[in-house]
Amino acid sequence: KVKITTDLRKYTAPARGSKAWKTIFKRRTAVERVNAYLKLYFQLDNVRYRTGKRSKVHFDLVTLVYNASKLAADRIRKMLESQQKQVA
């Protein structure tokens, strides 16, 4: 066993490879996937506002549109699955 204080980058809490680490890492990768999607398709890496208020409004609108589109896609998928179950 190695103390965390020796090298925080190498020996983290919870320890890498543990079950707790895997659950935390899964959550983090899910969030990073969404961030990458927003940067790629909604131009969040290219915000041209200088003030924080305008860029926050831009970010809020982008996340609103993203969440609404995901909600609509999930509802459409659920509806199509229920229709296919009724046919089969």
Rank of each mutant, 00 (worst) to 15 (best):
R27Q: 13
R28A: 09
Q83F: 11
I24C: 09
Q86N: 10
R50M: 03
Y11T: 06
S18Y: 04
K10H: 11
V34I: 13
G17C: 11
T12M: 10
W21S: 02
I24R: 15
T12V: 14
T29D: 09
T29Y: 08
D7G: 06
R16V: 10
Y66R: 01
T51N: 14
K78H: 04
V34L: 05
V2T: 14
Q84M: 15
K39Y: 08
R77L: 04
R16L: 07
R16Q: 12
G52T: 04
S18M: 03
T23M: 14
V57Q: 15
K56L: 11
R48F: 02
V34K: 10
A73T: 00
G52Y: 04
W21M: 01
K53T: 05
F25L: 06
I4R: 14
R16P: 07
A73H: 02
V2C: 13
Y11F: 15
L64K: 07
T29F: 06
R50V: 04
F25N: 11
V62D: 04
A30T: 05
G52N: 14
W21L: 01
Y41W: 07
V62K: 02
K26L: 12
R27Y: 05
T29P: 00
L80T: 01
K85N: 12
D60P: 03
A30F: 03
R48H: 09
T5W: 05
A15Y: 10
Q43I: 00
I24G: 09
Q84H: 15
K39R: 14
V34G: 03
L8T: 13
I76S: 02
K10N: 11
A30D: 12
V65M: 01
R75F: 01
P14F: 07
E81A: 13
D60T: 15
I24K: 15
L38P: 01
N46T: 13
N35V: 05
D60N: 14
V62I: 09
R28V: 08
D7A: 11
R50G: 07
Y11K: 06
A15M: 10
L8K: 15
F42L: 07
K22N: 11
V47R: 04
R75I: 01
A13R: 06
A36F: 06
T63Q: 14
L61F: 13
E32H: 08
R33Y: 01
H58T: 04
I24S: 11
V2W: 05
R50S: 06
Q83L: 15
N67D: 03
L8A: 13
F25I: 06
A30C: 04
L38W: 02
T23A: 13
S82L: 15
A88G: 11
D7W: 07
T29I: 11
A36C: 03
R54K: 13
S18T: 14
K85V: 11
D60L: 12
R77D: 02
D60M: 13
A30Q: 08
Y37I: 02
R33W: 00
T63D: 03
A73Y: 02
K70C: 08
D45T: 04
L40A: 12
L61A: 14
V47T: 05
T6C: 10
R33V: 00
K26G: 08
V62T: 11
K26R: 13
A30Y: 02
